[in-house]
């Protein structure tokens, strides 16, 4: 085990996987110098061929991942910020997500598209989006949202070995450092983790919201409410079983999601609960999400918009 933060954990997963498999290549804007820290030192270690600085051209970057994957490589397309997924969306939506199906399964497309999502850094609306709702509606891809250094490492190694396009979306930073396994540590895609057990209410949290949900559960415990906190980790495929079993036990559900509310992961999870755990529900399913707004710049405004611990605690208290 090593104590590390999220970006170094991502870095170690990349090094291990690129060491293991020569077909793993990585490219992106400033991949060599590494703006955010995920790719620090990779170019020195693996060379400019396998770790490639691209021009600023998301349209071709997302598409060339498909061509390179079809031709036998396992490309990692580093898109920096989640908002730039929109810039390269054509090839994501029309090629990567569909080509396997459209060709009757002739190919597999082992691609990782990675980006940093969410706000909290005074980066304003064009660098703070949480774009997975649009991705979840594409089919043909997977979406994982690690919440910590440990899950960041385990899910990245799984994503690189997966034979599908996987969107690997993390916060830019993850709060406190934590112990991360040094060995070949893999978390299965599509499996949620129960971080805290409880019988009174289920809180399902996604990616950057997981820490806040855990903090909220600690506050709630002091007033005698025992929340079960689920770290979803994967959005597509989604671990329905863990969610449903928990809701059947607690009878109540709150979902915490940093995406805008309309057609979000949160609304999808609410629909799953309504469909498959309806008879267990003792109260309405509530969603703690972002309104139909852009993420603002000024920290006090940003705090108004992005779900916080207080929002989660208050929402839970409305139900119990």
């Amino acid at each position: 085990m090593s104590r590390m933060r999220m970006m170094p954990a991502i870095n170690s997963a990349l090094i291990e996987e690129m060491d293991r498999d020569k077909k793993v290549i990585l490219y992106g804007e400033d991949a060599g110098i590494s703006l955010l820290g995920q790719t620090t030192g990779l170019q020195e270690r693996f060379g400019k061929d396998r770790v490639r600085d691209t021009p600023i051209c998301e349209n071709i970057m997302t598409g060339m991942a498909v061509g390179a994957a079809a031709a036998g490589y396992r490309p990692i397309c580093h898109l920096l910020y989640g908002n730039f997924i929109y810039t390269g969306f054509d090839s994501i939506a029309n090629q990567a997500a569909k080509l396997k199906y459209m060709t009757g399964g002739q190919i597999t497309l082992p691609i990782v598209y990675m980006a940093v999502i969410g706000g909290g850094r005074s980066a304003a609306a064009q660098h703070s989006d949480t774009p997975y709702p649009a991705l979840m509606n594409l089919g043909g891809i997977k979406v994982v949202v690690p919440s910590s250094a440990r899950s960041a490492k385990g899910l990245l190694k799984a994503a690189i070995r997966d034979d599908n396009p996987v969107f690997y979306l993390t916060a830019g930073s993850s709060g406190k450092p934590e112990e991360v396994p040094d060995d070949d540590f893999i978390l299965p895609i599509g499996k949620a983790e129960i971080l805290r057990e409880g019988n009174d209410i289920t809180i399902v949290a996604i990616g950057p919201m997981v820490l806040k949900a855990v903090e909220a559960s600690l506050v709630l415990e002091k007033i005698g409410i025992h929340a079960e906190v689920i770290d979803l980790l994967s959005l597509l495929p989604i671990d329905e079983e863990t969610i449903i079993n928990s809701v059947k036990k607690t009878g109540r559900l709150v979902i915490v999601d940093e995406a805008r509310d309309v057609c979000s992961a949160a609304s999808h999870i609410a629909a799953i609960a309504a469909d498959k755990a309806f008879n267990s529900l003792k109260s309405p399913v509530k969603r703690v999400t972002v309104d139909n707004l852009a993420i603002p710049y000024s920290p006090i405004l940003e705090d108004q918009v992005i779900p916080n611990v207080e929002n989660i605690v208050n929402t839970v208290r409305e139900l119990i």
């Binding site: 955010l36 820290g37 940093v116 909290g120 850094r121 980066a123 830019g172 930073s173």
Partner: peptide
């Protein structure tokens, strides 16, 4: 201070 584009917190 913020010393990185993705920095929200740090440890001295």
């Amino acid at each position: 201070p913020r010393v990185g584009m993705n920095m929200e917190e740090g440890t001295i």
